[in-house]
Computed example of a mutant assay.
Amino acid sequence: MTSKYDPVLKRIPQRPECPEIVFRQAGDGFLEVVYGNNEASANKTIKDILLRSFRVMVLNQQVRQADIPGLTETVPGAESLTYIYDPLELNTDALIQRVSQLELALESVMDESFDVRVIRMPLAFDHSLIKKSIDKFTSEINPDAVYCKDGSNLDYIARYNGITVEDLKQRFCGTEWIVSMVGFFPGLPFCYPLKPTGALTCPKYNPARTWTPEGAVDLADYCMTIFGVASGGGCQLVGRTIPIFQATPTHSQFAGNPALFRPTDVISFYEETEEAVDHIYELIRQGQWEYQTSIRNFSVREWVEYYDSCANDIRDLQEKQRRAQAELAGLEG
């Protein structure tokens, strides 16, 4: 059944190296451009997800450089790009026409490259505040949750991927995570692993938690996020890292923007003790401690070639995951 209120304004058909592009009216002065047909993450590879995300990053940069009159802001998503504009100054059809020109000119992102900011972050696995969040969930919401054994989600995540907890930790810190989008909660980055063997997955809580601490690092469907503020949440909890959001800045890192991350950033974790992470929290609140950042160029083609060279390792991990998930089938929490 079709409706006269169908929000879809235009479609650009799929091309050899570009998914279908769908233009949707998202409200007065909002245009959403979506890449692909919204299939579930579990049905896509990291390569599929990131090639779409790279396209968003490249188009976002091109649109900003085009300086379209009446366009006030762009909001990159993992597989979408939202345009915020003044409809009194910029006609919707005109915006679609200008964006379409840029889209059609970009046949592929394979030859694209861009500078990324690499940020090293300490990570305390199973921090006591993480355990407190899990204990609150099991005592108040779901005491039978199979993913909350002994106040930790790590054992379940490892079992779901057919690996050990120690292997989980090594893989988590052994890959770099590229920030695909920032949002949902204040400053929260959605990140995907650049190393194919870091593509770990797991289902979400059912139902969700009511409290997750600031700095919590979690995982679900290949995606890692970090909580900038305490809030509810549903992904499996891994550990805790340092502040990534300050609404009222006390540290120079947040002077120009309350959120630490932006799309194209790359996060690299290193394991640290709970005491060390908590000490860094206090230093940052006092305006001390220096975030470890560096800049490097990222080539899409070089990353795709690296990904393809890992084909055997990818198959090995996926087979472990399939066997493990079959064994866990039927468990509910």
Rank of each mutant, 00 (worst) to 15 (best):
17 E>Q: 15
185 F>V: 05
263 P>M: 10
33 V>K: 00
181 M>T: 12
223 C>K: 00
217 V>I: 12
162 G>I: 08
236 Q>V: 02
225 T>F: 06
127 H>V: 05
215 G>C: 09
313 D>Y: 08
173 C>T: 15
331 L>S: 12
137 F>A: 03
110 M>C: 03
291 Y>L: 09
294 S>Q: 13
159 R>I: 01
223 C>F: 00
223 C>E: 08
64 R>E: 14
229 V>D: 08
221 D>Q: 11
321 Q>H: 10
53 S>Y: 03
22 V>W: 07
92 T>Q: 15
177 W>L: 12
295 I>D: 09
118 V>W: 06
33 V>E: 03
202 C>H: 00
240 R>H: 03
114 F>P: 01
124 A>E: 05
78 A>W: 01
297 N>L: 10
34 V>N: 03
32 E>H: 05
270 Y>I: 04
74 T>W: 03
218 D>N: 14
171 R>D: 08
314 I>H: 11
302 E>M: 09
90 L>A: 06
52 R>E: 15
253 Q>W: 06
3 S>C: 09
139 S>V: 06
167 D>Y: 02
127 H>Q: 07
306 Y>W: 12
243 P>H: 11
330 G>H: 09
196 P>R: 06
307 Y>I: 04
176 E>W: 07
82 T>S: 12
131 K>L: 01
28 D>I: 10
173 C>R: 00
121 M>L: 15
184 F>W: 09
55 R>E: 02
318 Q>D: 14
87 P>V: 02
70 G>C: 10
145 A>G: 11
243 P>I: 02
50 L>V: 07
167 D>I: 05
3 S>Y: 12
198 G>D: 05
294 S>A: 13
60 N>Q: 12
136 K>Y: 05
236 Q>R: 14
94 A>T: 12
125 F>M: 02
267 I>Q: 02
330 G>M: 09
130 I>G: 03
321 Q>L: 07
40 A>H: 13
262 R>M: 13
188 L>G: 00
139 S>H: 12
165 V>R: 05
12 I>C: 03
281 Y>N: 08
53 S>G: 15
177 W>G: 04
41 S>M: 13
